[in-house]
Structure formats: C-alpha cells, structure tokens
Amino acid sequence: MDPHLLRTFVAVLDHRSFSAAASALGYTQSAVSQHIAALEADLGTRLVERRPVAPTPAGARLMEHAPALLLRLDVARADIARLHHTHPTRLTLACSPAALGPAIAQALACLRSTAHPLDLEVRMLGREAVIEDVLTGRADLGLVDGVAAPSDPLPLPDLGPTTTLAAAEETLAVLFPHNHPLALRRSVRLTDLTQAQWIDAPDTAIPLDRLRAVCRIDGFPPRIRHRGTDLHGLAALATAGHGLAALPLPLAATLGGAAIPVKEPRLVHRIELVHPANPTGPARQLADLITGAAVVQ
C-alpha cells in the first residue's frame, strides 16, 4: 500500500472534498482523483463515494488504520533522522497545559543556567499533539498529564521507540464556583458528581471519558465544550458556573473558584515525561532534572 496514496485518501475524507484535499496537499484535483482510483485498484474495492464525498464501508474500515499507519511511518523517519541530525544547543519541549507547573519551570531554569547557549522553545499543546510531536521529531521531549491510581502509569498509546518516565503525582481536585453547594466541602467523591454538569475540555482538564473509565460508571454529562489549551479561559467558565472541571489541586487553587480535593476513588493527577530512545544532550539533561526532582504532592 503506497503511503502517498494513503495520505491523499485521509486528506480527502478529512476535508470531505477532493478540491480541498488537493489544496491542502499541494496537488491538482486530477492528481487527487488519480491517487484515490489507484488506491481503490490496489485494494480491489471502492473506498470513497464521490457525491457527496464520504467513505464507503471499506473506506471507513481503512480510516480506522490509516492515521496510525501514517504516524508510524513518520515516527520511523524521525527516529532515523535523529541519528544524524542532532542540535546540541536546541531544545523543544511540548507540554499539555496542566503538565507545566513550577517544578518543571524550575528544571528549565536550572538547565539554562548550565547549558550555554540554549535555544529553548516551549509549546503548549493538547495531549495527543504532545505525543505526536515527540514521536515525529517536532519536539525533543514531551510532558503529558492525566489521572491514574497512585504509582500507576498513564494509559498512553503505543509510543514505539520512546522512553516514558514519571515526573510528578499531585492531588486531584474539582474546580467549583464559590457559590456551589459543595464549594465549602473539605473533599468530594467523584461518584457523587456523576450527574453534575461538567465542562468537556479534553485538552486542559481531565477528559470526561477518562473520569467515566476510572469511576467505572456512566455520567459526567457535558454542559458546554471547551476546545484549546487556555487554562484561564476554562477556569473562567468553571467559576462562572458553566460546569465542573477536574484539575491538579496546586494548579486549580491558583485559578479562582473553589478547588476541592477528590477523596474517592483514590486517584492522583500524574505527569509523565516522554522522550525518544536516543534523546539529544539537552533533552537528556532536562529529563534528569525533572525526574530527579519528581515529587508527590
């Protein structure tokens, strides 16, 4: 299966348009049509309905595999490139919003004091984008956060030739508006909040499907959706009463509103560091600084 044809197939279905896919890929519309026809001939079945553009049953099945296949090809290319193209004075760190706290910032300061010169870039991304940036070489090191039982690793996807290390475990909290009936509690149980109204903010707060999984119960209905990596925007919505959000306690306590620790189930907000199997010198130094200062709060 030609990966160039597969990329065109994904672009057509992502854009639901042959012309839009052609524009995004830098091809002519005729070339895109030829790519789809060649892929269909290779697999012996029709994959895309033309009017309107939509996947056939076979195309829908292929779309379940295509993004992961293309990502692994990009990962392999980046892994080989790292063997020959290292930048000993450059470091790109990708972080999910709730993963970059004071301890990480202090580790970066320590690194800059010892590594001269250092061209440092910090990117705030959603969790999946952080992992993809590390795997494809756009970032030297990544920090992702989530919720887990104490000392349990986060449920991350297959990361190929990478290393994952614990960076920190913190108390998990729910952010309430000050006038909420539970805002004066010393702690809360997530199972008591399954029918409360929540903010669906998968790139900033703990995703609601993850709360359902760890509580092993349906519920946590979203009242509104928040997209992006703006923690202060999320906090403004939560403290104005638009819905609840689960965040690490040290962070939630700085955002306004009432940050109430989660008592049950026994969970922690966990931060993990991800880097390639052959990290650059600055990435290895920063990983040592972060994991050496890993704390449980």
Rank of each mutant, 00 (worst) to 15 (best):
A293T: 09
V122S: 02
A205Q: 13
H35P: 04
A183N: 10
A105C: 08
V147T: 14
R138T: 09
R186M: 06
L71W: 01
A205R: 02
T204S: 05
L234S: 03
L108Q: 15
R127Q: 05
M124P: 00
P102Y: 03
D133T: 09
L71N: 05
E272L: 02
H269E: 11
A109D: 09
P55M: 10
C95T: 11
G256S: 08
R16S: 13
T162Q: 09
L43T: 01
D158G: 07
L154M: 07
P117C: 04
L135P: 08
H116K: 10
Y27I: 02
N179M: 07
F9T: 07
Q297G: 13
W198K: 05
R210L: 14
V274E: 11
D230Y: 05
P282I: 11
R216H: 15
A259W: 04
R284C: 05
A139C: 10
R225A: 13
V262L: 08
R123T: 06
C95F: 00
V174H: 00
C110A: 09
A277W: 08
A98W: 01
Q34M: 07
A258I: 08
G160Q: 01
R284L: 12
H178T: 12
V12C: 06
S187V: 06
A252T: 13
R227T: 15
D2P: 12
C110P: 01
R266K: 14
L237D: 14
A236G: 14
P181L: 11
D209V: 03
P250V: 05
T8F: 00
M63A: 08
R185K: 12
P117E: 04
S30G: 11
P276C: 12
N278K: 08
R82G: 09
F176Y: 13
L47S: 10
R189Y: 07
V12H: 01
E132W: 02
A109F: 06
A277K: 02
L39Q: 14
H269C: 12
R189E: 15
H4R: 15
L231C: 07
R225H: 14
H35T: 03
T254A: 09
V32T: 03
A258R: 06
A166E: 15
R284W: 02
F176K: 02
R138K: 15
T239K: 04
T204K: 00
L100H: 08
P3T: 14
L69P: 00
L62I: 09
R266D: 15
D209M: 05
H180R: 12
A115H: 00
G59V: 03
R223T: 04
L143Q: 12
V48E: 11
